Amino acid sequence: AEEIWQQSVIGDYLARFKNDRVKALKAMEMTWNNMEKKEKLMWIKKAAED
Rank of each mutant, 00 (worst) to 15 (best):
V22L: 12
K23D: 06
K26N: 10
Q7G: 05
A48G: 09
Y13S: 00
K37P: 15
M30D: 15
E39Y: 05
E2D: 05
I44V: 09
L41P: 02
F17L: 04
L14S: 02
L41W: 06
D50W: 05
K45T: 15
K38T: 13
K46V: 07
L25D: 05
E29C: 05
E29A: 10
E29D: 08
E29K: 09
K23S: 11
W32H: 01
M28Q: 01
L14D: 02
M30W: 11
A48Y: 11
E2Y: 14
S8M: 08
T31A: 14
M42K: 15
K46I: 11
D12I: 10
Q7E: 09
L41S: 06
Q6P: 01
V9E: 02
Y13C: 03
G11F: 10
A24F: 02
W32L: 00
L25S: 06
N33G: 08
A24H: 00
N19Y: 09
L41Y: 07
L14V: 03
A24S: 04
E2C: 11
K46H: 06
I4K: 07
D12P: 02
A48D: 07
I10H: 03
E36N: 11
E39L: 05
M35K: 01
N34L: 07
M42L: 13
E39K: 03
R16A: 11
Y13L: 03
M30C: 10
N33Q: 12
K23L: 14
Q6E: 06
E2M: 14
A47S: 06
E36F: 03
Q6G: 10
W43C: 03
D12N: 08
D12E: 15
M30S: 10
I4N: 07
R16W: 07
R21G: 07
E3V: 13
A1G: 14
L25P: 00
I10E: 04
N19R: 04
N19V: 02
K18G: 14
L14Q: 02
A24M: 07
A47Q: 05
M30I: 12
E3P: 05
W43L: 03
V22R: 12
M28G: 00
R16H: 09
W32D: 00
W5M: 00
W5G: 00
L25W: 07
K46Q: 07
W43Y: 04
K26E: 14
I10A: 05
G11P: 04
A15G: 10
V9R: 03
M30E: 15
T31M: 06
M28A: 03
E3M: 14
I4Q: 07
D12L: 07
I4A: 10
K40F: 02
L41C: 14
N33A: 14
S8V: 10
A48W: 12
W5D: 00
K40E: 02
T31Q: 09
T31E: 14
W43G: 03
T31C: 06
D50Y: 14
W32P: 00
A15F: 09
W43P: 03
A48S: 11
M30N: 14
D20P: 00
K18L: 10
M35C: 02
M30T: 11
E29F: 06
E39G: 02
N33D: 10
I4D: 03
M28R: 00
E2I: 09
A47I: 06
A1S: 05
S8K: 05
Q6K: 10
W5C: 01
A15E: 14
M35P: 00
I4F: 14
G11V: 12
W32Y: 01
D12T: 06
M30G: 07
M28T: 01
E29S: 08
N19A: 05
R21V: 13
M35D: 01
E29I: 09
M30R: 08
D12K: 07
S8W: 11
G11K: 13
A24W: 02
L25Y: 13
N33C: 08
K46M: 14
M30V: 15
E3I: 10
K23C: 07
S8H: 13
N19G: 14
A15V: 12
D20C: 04
W5K: 00
R16V: 09
I4S: 06
M35T: 01
M42W: 12
M35I: 01
L41K: 03
N34R: 08
L25Q: 10
I44Y: 11
L14N: 02
A47K: 03
Q6D: 01
Q7I: 09
I44D: 07
E39I: 04
R21I: 15
T31W: 05
E3F: 13
G11C: 14
F17H: 09
A48L: 15
T31Y: 14
T31K: 07
G11E: 11
E36W: 04
W5L: 00
Q7L: 14
S8A: 13
I44K: 06
N34F: 05
N34H: 07
E3S: 13
I44T: 05
K38Q: 12
A1W: 08
T31I: 10
L41T: 05
A48H: 10
K45E: 14
M42S: 12
D20M: 02
K37D: 15
G11Q: 13
V22N: 13
E2P: 15
N19K: 05
A27S: 05
Y13P: 00
W43R: 02
K46T: 06
T31N: 06
K40R: 05
K46D: 04
R16F: 11
L14Y: 03
L14W: 02
Q6T: 07
Y13H: 02
V9N: 05
E36A: 12
M28D: 00
Q6Y: 07
R16P: 01
K18Y: 12
K23H: 07
T31S: 08
V22P: 06
E36D: 14
V22T: 11
V9F: 04
E49L: 11
I44M: 09
A1M: 07
K46P: 04
A48E: 13
K38M: 10
D50N: 15
L14P: 00
E36M: 03
K37A: 15
K40D: 02
N34Y: 05
D50H: 15
E39C: 06
A27H: 06
W43M: 02
W32R: 00
F17K: 01
I4G: 04
K37R: 12
V22Q: 13
Q6H: 06
I4M: 14
Q7Y: 05
M42C: 14
K40L: 04
L25T: 10
N33V: 07
N34T: 10
K38H: 15
K45D: 13
K18M: 14
R16M: 14
K45N: 12
Y13R: 00
K23Y: 04
R21S: 08
Q6C: 10
A1H: 03
E3N: 09
L14F: 03
R21K: 12
F17Y: 11
A47H: 06
E36P: 15
D20E: 05
L14T: 03
V9T: 03
K23M: 13
L25R: 07
E2L: 14
G11H: 13
N34P: 00
E49H: 11
K40G: 01
E39V: 05
K37T: 15
K26H: 13
W32K: 00
W5I: 00
E29Y: 05
Q7W: 08
M42V: 13
L41F: 07
K37Q: 15
